[in-house]
Amino acid sequence: MEAFLDLFREYDIPGAFWVNIQLTFWGAVISLLLGVILVMMRICPVSSLRGFATAYVEFFKNMPLTIIMVFMVLGMFGQLKLSFSDDFDINFFWLAVTGLALYTASFVCESLRSGINTVPMGQAEACRALGLSFWQSASQVILPQAFRGSVAPMGNTLIALIKNSTVAAAASVTTETSSVMSDMIEFHASQILQIFFIFALGYVILIIPIGLLTTYLSNRLAVRR
């Protein structure tokens, strides 16, 4: 037991989870913005924008996240000199957030599109018949209903994002959970089961409430027709 508690004294485990929570938070915010823009492009009347959004989604949806993360560090930062900060830790953190957001945006777009498919055609036709513009119809009628119809897939996307935040290790974010866990196992191999247990439990505690919340919200917010 004493050895178990020593693990907590030696390593900042809550701090490691906090890094993943921050990665997830910023990744979620930015990917939500990007995803909304992408889904609007996918349903808009301009065919070149539709084509771009489709290509984006197909590209990022099918690209392994690790490759995106490595590219952020070696390509974006190493070759193209894209830098967020002179502080290495802060820079790698934001590079990882960018990679996560670019990747997750494609799934947010797909989730929202499944939500849009729950909105009957008649809603958009009523908008057009009243003289509302594309933007007005989307923002006032279609997207609000689409959001409420896509709570469940959005929740799944968020859960995937939390787990994917550990891939930030590939972008040299060394303070996040999977990196800290590797360190701990390296130096305390005899306690490997306890170490696994700590991190598994941590993620279960983070993720289960999200699953419960999205189930609750998707019933609560369902659009009644």
Binding site: P45, P120, G122, Q123, E125, A126, C127, R128, A129, L130, G131, L132, S133, Q140, V141, P144, Q145, R148, V223, R224, R225
Partner: peptide
């Protein structure tokens, strides 16, 4: 299409078989 179409559409009221009231409003 465009603004002119939107303007003219607003002069033609339409009532649908399925009502099509905005469900979120």
């Amino acid at each position: 299409e465009g603004r002119e179409l939107t303007r003219l559409r607003a002069e033609v009221g339409m009532v649908f078989q399925q009502f099509n009231l905005f469900a979120n409003k």
